[in-house]
Design a protein around this nucleic acid. Structure first.
Lengths: 311, 311
DNA sequence: ACCACTTACTTGACTTAGTCAAGTATCAGT
DNA sequence: ACTGATACTTGACTAAGTCAAGTAAGTGGT
């Protein structure tokens, strides 16, 4: 599924620049903690022990990237000082599960507080929105570079919030410009549709679904009332990064379910034949192609299609 | 100008989590380079020397956070190996300007290539849009935590691009919701206005200005034709992070200049009295309050104002 | 049950990296 | 010319980390 690219020199340089920057940044933060009785590595080990239970030496060495020999001695020293306890595991007598003693927790507390205060001071130089942007950006970096552990909840659906329609307009505008070369009139059309949707929103007959994944909007669909009998599905979209999770299908299903519940007779939609992945979803959901016609829009020659589903 | 806040425990924890994550990340990257003849610190010194001219030992120690004594020995070793040359500066005989010799460059090249390849491999695991998001996020972190060296160009104005109107709708919706508690109908209004603007755009009589700062949209304004004689200024906004740079004033000036050039007779605008910073800009530009009236919109009781400027 | 192979640590013998304090030479201001 | 900084340098350390060899315990195949 991963698409391979020539990463591009500017990107590589930007990442290398960030690495140099953050190497220094971490160095600065360490300096502050150096006054304590523990080295950075010791502090990292204590942190892990304080936050996770039943760790073995191997776990620590792996997660922190430490030499087993070095770690062994380090733990021995901790044990002698009464900071940790090692208990051989039942299942495997070679391993021992390492836990902080109350004394170890007491030793860790000021260290932890120091690091906490230091970061608090760092953040305090920024305004609240800047802090938010920083945290979001860090989470983005971590998510992209991390082991990409799949989130427990792959996605969730929620109703529209402030900021959503602008975001959806932005993303759809960019996406269809990139993927199909459509011009800014498509983005404008989305803006008009969504502006009108909110303005004349009738909660009894209409609804929107926003798919969210790790606090990011990754898809959406809107159902609008066309007449007593006919509902229209509009603006189905799923972020490329979230494709393959069944979000598109799920959004269409929600629409159909809602339309049935509201006793609409027909669910219609308009799309263009180039949007093949959307078309497959509509077909699978039972939509039939009603008619199609060539038209010129969004700077391209297109084939518009009307699909409908009898409910 | 900086507003102080209680940084909030989740944010602090998020930043600390990122620091632990990136400590490990940097550790991993170093491991790869450890096979070379140089230590991480040596590599950092070589990198600096390869990319900046006329550095002194003090510069290096400061920028990389190194102990002067340690650095001194390190440089001595480099000099003995013929990697660097030290020339006492004319102005100050205590300092010497350190430069890489051709041999030093030759020694640095594979190191540099190794780091480059390593990062390229890291990036290659991501799709192109993910790479972009990563780089953007890293730049955000760096900008926020860095010495915040003011960009050379504080901002630039450019015409509308695909993605802009959605972004502006998104930001204005969120901003006015946060600052004034307006509901989603304001965002919808912006969407309708901008959708219509693009749809019926007449380049001869209308224009948009987007203010960009470090590749981020930080403000915008739109001028639309109302009649042969009357132009209307719409949707002036400036990001809070970019306020105080005169962007708002500049955007309004551009509008006025354009309106004059097109021989409009009057420039009008509608706003609400709660938007006091915008009002100050209009007043300073010579706009006069034509009339105002109470109205209920965006979930609030407001006072709408019409301002106009005879050109 | 036994053998070969792996894993989870441990230990000894190192090297490297970094620190700290006390120097020397030079400069900047008065 | 004198005072107090600055820009290194050097000596004497300690801490931090590495590497290879070893031991005890598990795992899988026959």
């Amino acid at each position: 599924m991963t698409i391979h690219h020539q990463p591009g020199k500017e990107r590589i340089d930007a990442v290398r620049g960030f690495n140099r920057f953050y190497t220094r940044q971490i160095g600065l933060l360490d300096e502050g903690l150096l006054k304590s009785a523990f080295s950075l590595t010791e502090a990292r080990v204590l942190y892990e022990l304080a936050h996770r239970d039943g760790l073995t030496a191997t776990d620590l060495a792996r997660d922190l990237g430490l030499d087993p020999g070095y770690l062994s001695r380090l733990l021995k020293k901790f044990e002698e000082r009464g900071l940790v306890e090692r208990v051989a595991t039942q299942t495997d007598a070679r391993r021992s599960s390492i836990t902080l003693t109350p004394g170890g927790r007491a030793a860790f507390a000021p260290l932890n507080q120091g690091s906490h205060d230091q970061v608090a001071a760092l953040l305090d130089r920024l305004s609240a929105p800047e802090q938010d942007r920083l945290v979001k950006a860090m989470q983005t970096v971590q998510r992209l570079l991390g082991e990409s552990a799949e989130p427990k909840v792959p996605y969730m659906l929620r109703p529209l919030q402030v900021g959503d329609i602008g975001w959806i307009i932005h993303r759809q505008g960019l996406l269809y410009a990139q993927e199909y070369g459509w011009d800014e009139t498509y983005e404008a059309l989305v803006a008009e549709i969504l502006g009108a949707f909110v303005k004349s929103y009738d909660p009894k007959w209409e609804r929107s679904w926003i798919a969210e994944r790790e606090a990011e909007v990754v898809g959406s669909v809107f159902l609008v009332r066309q007449s007593d009998a006919v509902a229209r599905l509009r603006l189905l979209y799923v972020e490329p990064s979230a494709r393959g999770l069944g979000i598109g299908r799920r959004l269409v299903e929600e629409c159909i379910g809602f339309a049935r519940a509201k006793a609409y007779k027909t669910l219609t939609l308009w799309t263009n034949d180039v949007l093949s992945s959307a078309r497959r979803i509509y077909e699978a959901a039972g939509f039939k192609l009603a008619n199609q016609e060539r038209h010129h829009a969004f700077g391209k020659d297109l084939v518009g299609q009307n699909w409908s589903l009898e409910l």
